[in-house]
């Protein structure tokens, strides 16, 4: 099994990385893994279920602020803060999913976009709690009594949680729930006739996707020392959308690949907002023009051509 061997080699390399890598590389690795969890989550909603929700950055932010506030106030174990952030995000995602049931396609895109911007406004304006436009300091997280101060400290935790989410995603994709997601994407009418509870499945996709985003936010707090509402706007949603579009909507491998490639881009171009915007914009347009199924689609086509 070539694939299994490859997976084992990659896993070993990932776990061995802290022995050889510098602090900056580990920071980059942590950040990329957060992007992976974010794009896996958005892929469930947009790629698998076909629900064009554009509030991902808001759920990411809810995960971050919940984890930070809990951590700063109580010093609760990191897994608790992470789970709390993810659960609150999922709960709000559930409500958003439920109230958005009547909308589809562009109306859904517009209302979730508006929701995302409203939540960002809350982050920026609720100064007593979120620090408002000044941002908020993040105290080191607490893992079984250890303080996670550096990127190196947090790396293994981030890696294990990311891998857990990857496995969960693969399992969901292969499960009957995954089939139900795709059925709703392809034809709501036929899905209902086959016994799929279309409303329930849509709400589940919203909640699950928000859970991932919230957990990604929790992971972010384990290696970062500061959060600013500026970084939780629509641009972040667009970045994650670009990741899954580049990888290929509806493909787990694509979502991971897209997150890694574009995550590197965005970090390298961090100081150059204009370049980031030009590149994301051009990629979104070019992908839709020439590779609507992203890199995975191109790969499939190449294989089929041989």
């Amino acid at each position: 099994m070539k694939r299994a061997t490859l997976a084992v080699v990659i896993l070993l390399a990932l776990f061995a990385l802290p022995m050889v890598a510098s602090g900056y590389i580990l920071y980059l690795a942590n950040l990329l893994m957060v992007f992976v969890v974010l794009s896996l989550g958005l892929n469930i909603l947009i790629g698998e279920t076909g629900q064009f929700g554009l509030a991902h950055a808001a759920f990411y932010g809810i995960g971050i602020y919940t984890a930070v506030l809990l951590n700063n106030a109580t010093g609760a174990p990191v897994l608790v803060t992470l789970l709390a952030g993810a659960s609150l995000a999922a709960l709000i995602g559930l409500v958003l999913g439920a109230i958005s049931l009547r909308m589809r396609d562009i109306y859904l895109a517009l209302s979730t976009f508006a929701f995302g911007e409203a939540v960002r406004w809350v982050f920026a304006s609720w100064t007593p709690v979120t620090g408002g436009p000044n941002g908020l300091r993040i105290n080191p997280s607490n893992l079984f009594g250890f303080k996670l101060v550096t990127d190196r400290d947090a790396y293994l935790l981030v890696l294990v949680v990311t891998l857990a989410f990857l496995l969960l995603t693969i399992q969901i994709t292969r499960s009957r729930l995954g089939s139900a997601f795709r059925a709703v994407r392809e034809s709501e009418i036929a899905a209902a006739a086959m016994g799929v509870n279309v409303r329930g499945v849509k709400i589940a996709a919203f909640a699950l996707s928000a859970f991932y985003a919230g957990a990604a936010g929790g992971l972010f707090t384990t290696f970062s020392s500061f959060i600013h509402p500026e970084s939780l706007g629509f641009m972040t949603t667009i970045m994650v959308l670009t990741m899954i579009v580049v990888g290929g909507l509806g493909s787990v491998v694509g979502a991971v690949g897209g997150a890694l490639i574009l995550g590197l881009f965005s970090e390298l171009l961090r100081q150059l907002l204009s370049f980031q915007e030009i590149i994301y914009g051009a990629i979104l347009m070019l992908c839709m023009m020439y590779a609507p199924r992203g890199l995975m689609g191109l790969l499939e086509r190449k294989q089929a051509g041989r």
Binding site: R182, A183, E186, A190
Partner: peptide, 14 residues
């Protein structure tokens, strides 16, 4: 009203 992008098998699976 088929699930167009899915395989024949997955259509029946649903």
């Amino acid at each position: 009203e088929l699930f167009g992008e899915l395989s024949v098998f997955e259509n029946v699976l649903i």
